[in-house]
């Protein structure tokens, strides 16, 4: 019995504890990301934003959550019930499990696996299922159109995301995410991060993650002017809330991936004492917050893309360019004998 406790139960409990340590702050972050978005957009549009519930509207996300929780779950008569309810769960779960391999600080990672980069790529490519299944199971025109758009869009932009990840891997010489962060450590601090030598890829990656998370200006799957609310038209109550949470958790996740690949993860921007006193996880959070600000900034600024232009950008601009850049980077590394061992 004691053996059973030592070998199986205790490690299992520790892992569950670690998972809760990641998931609970993440959900709080998602709740406050919605407030952050509304406040930032309000300031950009000379409004006040939510300011009634709690001081400065700080309790607004909780009020929203409670409201959604007490609404009625409506399942349309013609819908495929199992898949209809499965789809939001898939979206939500996929946006959580990717966090298993994200390193928050040196050694602060749930699963430090060797193929971390590939794992993230695999999980982000699965995100399309929640949306496409939701659209089909709703058995309704607008959700179906939204789902088809989303499937085509996410598959297209994944290709260039893949090539961007390959370039970073070529430079870092490892698929391990902690290893990728450590490869950006150096005397120059901020200038050692991969976004300096790979600046064009950084831009491509950022635009692609906007498309991958279905955010403005690529939010065609839920374009409210044309498709009511796209794939989530028929959803209400907690099913809708799960889509919402999943979408925002995905935004944070993609910003975290971008931080790890290009912005040096938990590393401080310079090796000065003031900066190194601040723990790495705070740096990681600050970088994610900056990227999320850009997400919101883009939403408040740019008009929506037309669908054919979206496809043109993905296949005719990003794909050839990122493919070329992979070849150029590989050639550079081999020619100057800088291939990481």
């Amino acid at each position: 019995m004691v053996e059973f406790w030592d070998i199986y139960l205790l490690p299992a409990l520790i892992i569950v504890g670690k998972i809760l340590l990641i998931v609970v702050p993440l959900l709080v972050a998602v709740a406050y990301l919605t407030l952050y978005e509304r406040k930032v957009m309000a300031v950009m549009q000379l409004r006040k934003g939510p300011n009634v519930v709690g001081p400065f509207g700080l309790l607004q996300p909780i009020a929203d959550g409670v409201k959604l929780f007490f609404k009625e779950t409506v399942v349309p008569t013609g819908a495929n019930k199992v898949l209809f309810l499965l789809a939001p769960m898939v979206t939500f779960i996929l946006s959580l499990i990717a966090w298993a391999v994200i390193p928050f600080d040196e050694g602060m990672v749930l699963a430090n696996i060797n193929v971390g980069g590939l794992y993230l790529f695999a999980i982000s490519s699965l995100g399309v299922y929640g949306i496409i299944v939701a659209g089909w199971a709703s058995n309704s025109r607008y959700p179906f159109l939204g789902a088809l758009r989303s499937a085509a869009q996410m598959v297209s932009y994944e290709v260039s995301i893949g090539f961007v990840i390959v370039t970073v891997l070529l430079c870092a010489g490892t698929l391990n995410l902690s290893g990728i962060v450590m490869s950006q450590k150096g005397d120059l601090g901020l200038l050692n991060w991969w976004f300096v030598p790979l600046f064009p890829m950084f831009i491509i990656f950022f635009v692609s993650i906007l498309a991958e998370t279905n955010r403005h200006p690529f939010d065609l799957p839920e374009a409210e002017a044309e498709l009511v609310a796209g794939y989530q038209t028929e959803y209400s109550s907690m099913a809708f809330a799960l889509f919402f949470l999943g979408e925002y958790a995905n935004m944070i996740l993609m910003s975290a991936i971008c931080t790890i690949l290009f912005l040096g993860g938990w590393l401080p921007p310079a090796d000065w004492a003031i900066f190194t006193w601040i723990p790495g996880i705070i740096w990681f959070g600050i970088k994610i917050a900056v990227l999320l600000f850009v997400f919101i900034w883009v939403r408040a600024t740019l008009p929506r893309y037309r669908y054919d232009q979206l496809m043109r950008l993905g296949w005719k601009v990003f794909l050839p360019f990122s493919l070329l850049w992979v070849v150029v980077t590989a050639g550079f590394l081999v020619y100057f004998d800088k291939v990481p061992a």
Partner: peptide
Amino acid sequence: MILIVVYVGAVAVLFL
């Protein structure tokens, strides 16, 4: 991972 990326992430999406 490659199995999931290629087959689940791309091929099966097109099937669906």
